[in-house]
Write a protein that binds this DNA or RNA. Structure first.
Lengths: 237, 237
DNA sequence: CATAGAACATGATAAAAATCATGTTTTACT
DNA sequence: AGTAAAACATGATTTTTATCATGTTCTATG
């Protein structure tokens, strides 16, 4: 089986109670989600949902890391977004009224809560705050996507690789040492974020390793010189 | 002066009365927009709004063609979206609560209706249908942006140039002859949609001209062999 | 309608990135 | 622990695309 139902997490005591877009709602609304939701766990590499399938609700990440990726016309994966604990998931397709335009795949073991479509859409109809928050969420996603478009169109691969590292670090943060990126991505994954060949990504990472900007040890990536990495990414925002 | 106030268009008799996301609303809501809105006209090349400025409302295009573009870090323009008669405009920044992340520039003379922020947000608070439609609009935009990301990351320039032509044609349609794209884009504009150097865009368009796929005469572009153009774009959706 | 500036075109060259090829190291699994 | 498969690494080569250079054709404006 692709996933396993687990004992439901309790939204009231969730670490993300007051930051998550769903649970940040009024107590009553949160409780409605809480009682109807179904939690499942997924192992690394498993699909939470697949591109092309119609959505039956929305998800909320209880713990773990997930990538959202699209298949290109030639079968190459493109990683569109990274999802972390507390993030909502799968709302685009539902609100658009069509099927998933990307797949959600566990980067590491994770737990996910599922809120049925009927409940969610019902609450959305009467909870203005939630509606506005969903609009803000989508607008922010759109802004990021448009920035990504500009960078893909205009920046050389080296800068984009550096940027991808910063992006992963922004999303998942550092380990306790304050240097190691707290997520294990394969070189292929990084290439699929950047939009380049795997070999090219490997090469550029090796160079940055040689240039003392980062330090590679297996899948662990240490950022040893953040200012230099930012400079390599060549970003001014 | 950058723009000129003109006699307000009447929403009740607008050609887009029942398709536009704002005016498609109930009669009362539409009338509220209608009485408070302010219409202006812009000449080709003028800005409707500029990247970095805070929004004071949303726009609705009464007539004309507009491009939404972002400045890359090195000052190169990236065209993000194309806007046509009846389309809403400028809602992303407002709903996100931040400043415009792209500029809206008239591709040809156009007329635009402005709906003040307070009115729009007020109606949004009480009109669930409008809220849901805005979410759908944003979700659709996001889907398109993510497809664009995938194509920029994975497809060669030639395919993207062909795709850009199809995109322009999809947006603005054909002239009466059923072949000529009903919009005049400079080669530089096309390059800035595709994400390539102007010379490269020129070269590839010339090639397609030679290959009898399109026919160039000045800024007019005729699609002489649509199936071949689709094949050149290499799209399977 | 003359003319300057912009847009378009095209060749030559350089740079960037993909692909191919091959070897090494990790990782997952019996 | 041993082994097969996957991931990583790196060199050589080719392809793609950008850049530079230069000339031509539009097009807006006095």
């Amino acid at each position: 089986m692709a996933f396993e139902h687990v004992k439901n997490a309790d939204c009231a005591h969730c670490a993300k109670r007051f930051t998550n877009v769903f649970c940040n709602a009024e107590y009553d609304v949160m409780q409605e989600f809480n009682t109807e939701k179904v939690c499942s766990s997924y192992k690394k590499g498993e699909y939470i949902f697949k591109e092309g399938i119609r959505p039956h609700g929305v998800y909320c990440v209880n713990y773990g890391k997930i990538k959202l990726s699209k298949m290109g016309d030639d079968g190459k994966e493109q990683i569109i977004r990274l999802v972390k604990t507390g993030d909502p998931l799968g709302y685009r397709a539902l609100l658009s009224g069509d099927s998933y335009s990307s797949s959600a795949i566990a980067i590491e073991d994770c737990g996910v809560c599922f809120i049925p479509k009927e409940l969610f859409m019902g609450i959305l109809q009467r909870d203005t705050t939630l509606s506005l928050e969903m609009m803000k969420l989508l607008s922010d996603d759109l802004k990021k996507a448009e920035l990504q478009i500009t960078h893909l169109a205009q920046k050389p691969v080296r800068e984009r690789v550096a940027e991808a590292l910063l992006f992963i670090k922004e999303t998942y943060g550092f380990e306790e040492d304050g240097k190691t990126i707290a997520a294990a991505f394969s070189r292929e994954d990084i290439a699929n974020i950047v939009g380049t060949a795997t070999e090219t990504a490997i090469r550029l990472l090796s160079e940055m390793n040689k240039d003392q900007i980062i330090q590679l040890s297996g899948k662990k990536i240490l950022i040893t010189d953040l200012p230099k990495l930012i400079k390599t990414a060549n970003i001014y925002d």
